[in-house]
Write a protein that binds this DNA or RNA. Sequence first.
DNA 1: AGTTTTATGTAACACTTGTTACTGCGAGCC
DNA 2: GGCTCGCAGTAACAAGTGTTACATAAAACT
Lengths: 210, 210
Amino acid sequence: MIQELTEGYGHIFEKALINDIIQVGTFKEIPAGHKMMEIGEFVKSMPLLISGAIKVLREDQDGDELLLYYLEKGDTCSMTMACCMGQHRSQIRAIAEVDSKLIMVPIAKMEEWTSKYKSWRNFIFESYHNRINELLSTIDSIAFYQMDERLIQYLKEKARVNKENIIKNTHQEIAYDLHTSRVVISRLLKKLEQMGKIELHRNYLEIIDL
Amino acid sequence: MIQELTEGYGHIFEKALINDIIQVGTFKEIPAGHKMMEIGEFVKSMPLLISGAIKVLREDQDGDELLLYYLEKGDTCSMTMACCMGQHRSQIRAIAEVDSKLIMVPIAKMEEWTSKYKSWRNFIFESYHNRINELLSTIDSIAFYQMDERLIQYLKEKARVNKENIIKNTHQEIAYDLHTSRVVISRLLKKLEQMGKIELHRNYLEIIDL
DNA sequence: AGTTTTATGTAACACTTGTTACTGCGAGCC
DNA sequence: GGCTCGCAGTAACAAGTGTTACATAAAACT
């Protein structure tokens, strides 16, 4: 754990803080697809992401989903912080997008470190800031762009996060993330294929030049 | 200033912190319609809202707007914090919705108080939390609801913030906030009027029963 | 009062997206 | 092989929203 922690966070956290984290943190490996947090749950600990990616989703009353953003190496879940501090419930769902490694830190330490370590404070503030900016991007995407553009953005982002140009999802799964219907996605993907930007296959697609 | 500060924040801030704020803060009265922050600007101080309401907007490349949320009594601008700490530029525009009173605190103190006062830390975290939840509500609204529902939500929220059932805006202004066209708003408002939920007039409308 | 400006009402139409229905294809299973 | 099941392709249509155009009415101005 020491090595992974130092590698990912050594340049931003003070030595003493790193030691504290090692004392109380627990290392975890999460398989792709594993649900890490559900809407309405209370949270007891906070994740520091070492590698992999976590998909963060919002859901409406009917159970329809919408992808908000991905958490990656060096990120933490701001929702967790906000929830724990104020005894609120999670407003989001989190699912491992790929196999991921992370360190779980008990919430109790949060408050302590916030007063003790400047680097921790900065990390938390940066984290909030990043999450807010990602939510703003999500809003831009929904409010200002149409589905064809949103789909392209989605595929690019997904390829970036997964570090490969093959998107292993059915049209239905993509439709869930973008909160639209399978037919709409099939239609738009077909157009992209005809433009030579992607290649379609069963259960996956390949990005050629988006 | 002391009285206003104590009234609005006395129950959450420690005595010593209140005193610190009085030392370095400056009291300001902002007239309705005044632009308080522009996209791309750097920010030097942070507002503590005493009374009134601030409208927070997002803008796309074409200059099209979208209302994100309102800041009210007891709120602060999380963007400000995030921006100042990390030397980022504002991602949003802020305009006084009504005449408002606030205390401006120099950013330099932020960092200091965060380590010094637990109540300040909690305030900042609560503030981030609230803002994130408001962004999530905005996303819900855009992603999961159609324009007729969004319009109703908008009118209700506006009435609440303005503390009156008369909305003093043209259809065009409402259309800007919801990022749609004037014709669409006129159409939907007319329907609401026919349902007896509102009464339409030139330059304003009255909410009867939404 | 007459003119101009601005806000609103409304119709007609286009475009995007969502829905339904049906097709065929491919993979896995018996 | 024959069967089932899930995935993708496609057409036809419905609904919602955006656009253009024009008419009318209220307010503002001269």
